[in-house]
Amino acid sequence: MTQSWKSAISRRPVLSGLIAALGLAIAGGIAFEVPKLSRRRYKPSPYDDLLANLPDRENAARIGAAVIAESPAFDANQTARALVNSLADNSLAGVVSADLAQGRMDEVHGWLLPQTLTQLCALAAKAS
């Protein structure tokens, strides 16, 4: 009588492999999810696509609060529309460089900042 093909494969290595694969999946999941968990979560806003350009949204929001305090009539939606257009085909770095080359600067509590950065900061403050 010959052994069935099932019995020709040992169960122990298969189980070990499955456990290892499961462990790797769990570890990978943790590695993938933990930074997301530790990252600051923001409430959803209409400007999230724009604000994704900001590498440092917390500090930007602090500047933005000062912008809004100095310009109470700040129109977030109009600013957002303009930024969507200007950032549609250009990186933030490129648009900021153009601001500097053309002298488009804003003064925020005395700090001289590129205009596009100032506007994004104000949106970050509005969204926070």
């Binding site: 900001l54 440092d56 500090n59 933030l92």
Partner: peptide, 16 residues
Amino acid sequence: DGLGQSAVAATASTLG
């Protein structure tokens, strides 16, 4: 001050 530190941090990070 705090606002100054934020201005530098936000600007420098934007400029890379």
